[in-house]
Design a protein around this nucleic acid. Structure first.
Lengths: 138, 138
DNA sequence: TTGCTCCTCACGTCACGTGAGGTGGC
DNA sequence: TTGCTCCTCACGTCACGTGAGGTGGC
């Protein structure tokens, strides 16, 4: 796949992809044949994950970079998981991954709770308006 | 109150307040005595609402401006509500307010649902990790 | 060969951050 | 009078948008 198709599938633009590459967020797309970047479905998935976290959690690209680096480190560990047989090593991998997931969960829940509060307030407004409309009709 | 106190209460900065004033998002603070802007608790509430929508819904300041203008128009109508006795006028006010609240509700729910999906995925990850840890301990 | 997409500068924009230099009010 | 906060430019920054001019591949 080329950059335009990837951008469209991820709901973003080629410029954004090149910018993320420049920042080291996306890894340089292969350039074997010619000057064009080549991507696969894994790259699309990665880009989708990044833009999702960016939009839903409102993270800066600096924060995202750190988060993605931690994610990559864990992925590397998971590969070592299969290479090693060491019990202790496997435990270290799991123990390192858990707090990372916990942190993300807390961020997500905090935002969702704030949105739920906002929804409750809007619901209340709506109920008031509906009640008034009923009065005016009665 | 002066600009620094307002900024702190709203969790933002004086520069942001001045910028929003420049854009017409905040209305010019009174400047009766001297050159300093003066604010009251209503201004704090308004600023809090704006930054909340900005952060939670990820709106641009342009979108926020339109939303706030609609909100102000409705507030003006509500004042007219108390001045008029006309049934028809009151109904128009209610009918104008309802779709506005509906639109906001939909935006909020969409975001919350996306966050819930993200949370479910993270929960799943966590469960997997916990299961592996149990295995390693057993 | 003709279109279309891609490429790299490089300047523009949005939403502020950050001093520089000066003035107001307890 | 001394600090502290405020004031207005005005340039810097982050995360891209948007042409300008040129090249690659079906």
């Amino acid at each position: 796949m080329r950059i335009g198709a990837v951008a469209e599938q991820a709901g973003t633009t080629p410029r954004t992809i090149r910018y993320y590459e420049e920042l080291g967020l996306l890894g340089v797309g292969e350039r074997a044949k010619g000057k064009h970047r080549e991507y696969d479905q894994n790259d699309v998935a990665r880009l989708l994950e990044i833009t999702r976290l960016r939009d839903l959690l409102g993270l800066t690209l600096d924060e995202l970079t750190k988060l993605v680096e931690a994610e990559d480190a864990r992925a590397a560990l998971r590969r070592r998981w299969h290479e090693t047989e060491s019990h202790a090593e496997r435990r270290r991998i799991v123990e390192a991954a858990l707090p990372h997931v916990e942190t993300q969960l807390e961020l997500v829940r905090k935002r969702r709770d704030e949105l739920n509060r906002l929804e409750a307030e809007l619901q209340d407004k709506k109920r008031t308006l509906l009640a008034r409309r009923r009065e005016l009709r009665g």
